[in-house]
Design a binder for these strands. Structure first.
Lengths: 359, 359
DNA sequence: GTTAGCACTCCCAATCTTTGAGTGCTAACG
DNA sequence: CGTTAGCACTCAAAGATTGGGAGTGCTAAC
């Protein structure tokens, strides 16, 4: 697959410049233009030979005889691998994001929206952020508050903030029973994750029922509620912004082409599948055919995984044409990933004294 | 303005058929086509005379000599006024919506999303729903629950469900103080609206501070929180779906034209301004120039105001080309409005016994 | 290995032509 | 007087033709 080693130093340089120029101007690469633009001492004939060789090797392709050449996916891939570590961020725009991180007591769901908005603004590409599911969240405490007829609110405190959901109790409970039930549940499930709690409930159902004795009533409702909550977050924790910015690019002047991508950007479920993956690396580009989706054959997706305290919290995706500004995107994503790394979830919610909780 | 009275019965019929046909086929109306399609006994020459007259009167216009005619805004307006009461709903699709209304304990914010999704699916046009602000909501009770360090959760029960927001207390309070504070606040503000409560707090600040004595501490935070909450709902209570469906229409085959409308559909703030108005009527169409927005000169917006117990709860907007299927849209909107009318908010939240609240 | 030179390819834009759908007008008809 | 057949006129849209020019590949000379 990777035969970039076969490339002479000169070929590498030519290919790099060719792709770079194409990304900037969207004009097919020609030997003549390269002579006049770059500071090369080579003649156009020599460049033609080299470009021809690069085409044979699959890095470039011609649209027709006597047209300039355009990068193939392989060509873009070479380019991306080369610039991997050089980024060119719009510092000014990104600094605004920094402020957001420093705003305390911002809900994480809010946070990703603000970030997606800003990233899309700075990069000028559609941006998607998905929040990880809640199943890996640690439970800090559980509270139950009676509401109007036969309902109660279940509150679960987690390092990522407060989860809340209404319980359908089918029976009235008073303030005190609810309070006690919450305390019992907290004692039982504290410092498990939501996922573990569900698993635990499902596996040791009877056992726990006995253990919780008089609060067993709540128990069924809590389980149902947790499952509903998990599904809901799966569905809601995804946000996208700036879809129409795609239309600015010359590759989407044709409505037919744009339609596919735009409707994909409207479908949260598909977006989630697209953005999430288990890759370990912080930032990755997937180019054109590499995406294995006809609708996206002319797109590149840049993905980044944001971690707080080492835990995967959110995934950011930037969707653009293959001809996207890789260095800029790379810079923006690196910035976001770093900001997340520096952040402590508890701080996000205004708790500067970790571990100093009370219940 | 309205000189539809001047139209002979025959002209009305011709104009109606002309617009109807144009809406269906997007082909300019020609005398020849009208003869072959409709069961008229008139000759094409006579129709030409009539069409010419209708053009003089401003209902139709020609794109150029020797082309067929196209409806003007005035022509569409005539058409809409004529079909006002005939609707042609996709009953099957809409019945699915009915089920949603019957699902209890669905959050109103969730409800509008599901409805927008379905309406967009059934009509095949972008659909926007905005939820009214929270300021007119009646307060049923206020609860305060202590959370982790120096924070508490404020819960306000309203007929539209539970509002919640985190309070930054800057000081720890125990379970009991919070509980008591909630009770005091409830007694003071119960059955006011959120708006009245804010107003009240702002006007009689000192007075209330004295009255609440030991819970005065909470008071400032509650005020701030309420204001924040009001703003937040203003921003969040709007949802749109199906923007890309616009691209199916021949009038948006040109990216430049589509871009404007699509980016408008992405901007929640603009959408809100567009959808909300104070008009009393349940369903209204605003056509092309009537919208007073260049970007929308080729669009029609259908708006409906949904009321529960007489109170304006949500506004639905359907955006399409001027050539939209008015009868179908009208049917769909009427259905939604009626469903809302039949709904009791308390029932939505699972309370079948109204007034049977406890605190 | 590099490059000047040249034949060759083929897109693109401009121009022109043709076609035909559709109109407006007029004169005749019942 | 409303209706209609007939005809001249208009004009967009779709081909056909053309020339220009940008770009290539190849070859032969450096």
């Amino acid at each position: 697959m990777n035969d970039e080693i076969d490339l002479s130093q000169r070929k590498k340089q030519i290919l790099f410049q060719a792709v770079e120029d194409y990304i900037e101007n969207a004009n097919p690469i020609t030997s003549g233009a390269m002579v006049s633009k770059s500071e090369t001492t080579l003649s156009s004939a020599t460049l033609r030979n080299e470009l021809n060789a690069l085409e044979q090797m699959g890095y470039l392709k011609q649209l027709h005889t006597s047209s300039g050449r355009v990068p193939t996916t392989k060509g873009y891939r070479f380019f991306v691998n080369t610039i991997k570590d050089s980024c060119r961020a719009d510092i000014e725009g990104l600094l605004k994001i920094k402020n957001v991180f420093e705003t305390r007591t911002i809900n994480l769901t809010e946070l990703i929206k603000v970030i997606a908005d800003k990233v899309s603004e700075v990069t000028d590409y559609p941006t998607v952020i998905s929040l990880g599911g809640i199943d890996k969240l640690e439970i800090l405490s559980i509270k139950i508050i009676p509401l109007m007829t036969e309902q109660a609110l279940m509150l679960i405190e987690t390092p990522r903030g407060l989860l809340n959901n209404t319980l359908e109790l089918k029976q009235n409970f008073d303030e005190q029973s609810c309070f006690d039930a919450g305390r019992v549940l907290t004692n039982k499930f504290k410092s498990m994750t939501i996922g573990q709690m569900i698993e635990n409930i499902e596996n040791k159902h009877q056992e726990i029922l006995n253990e919780l004795s008089e609060y067993a009533n709540f128990f069924e409702y809590v389980l149902q509620s947790l499952i509903k909550l998990t599904k809901q977050y799966e569905k809601e924790g995804i946000y996208s912004k700036g879809a129409t910015k795609l239309l600015k690019n010359p590759e989407y002047q044709n409505v037919e082409q744009a339609k596919d991508v735009l409707s994909l950007l409207e479908d949260k479920e598909e977006l989630r599948n697209l953005i999430e993956d288990d890759s370990d690396c912080d930032i990755a580009f997937t180019i054109g055919d590499e995406l294995n989706d006809n609708r996206l054959s002319e797109c590149t997706i840049a993905k980044a995984h944001c971690k707080i305290n080492g835990e995967n919290i959110a995934s950011v995706g930037i969707i653009g044409p293959k001809r996207m500004d890789y260095a800029k995107i790379s810079g923006a994503l690196k910035f976001i990933v770093d900001e997340f790394k520096k952040t402590d979830l508890l701080e996000l919610h205004g708790n500067n004294k970790k571990g100093d909780k009370y219940d």
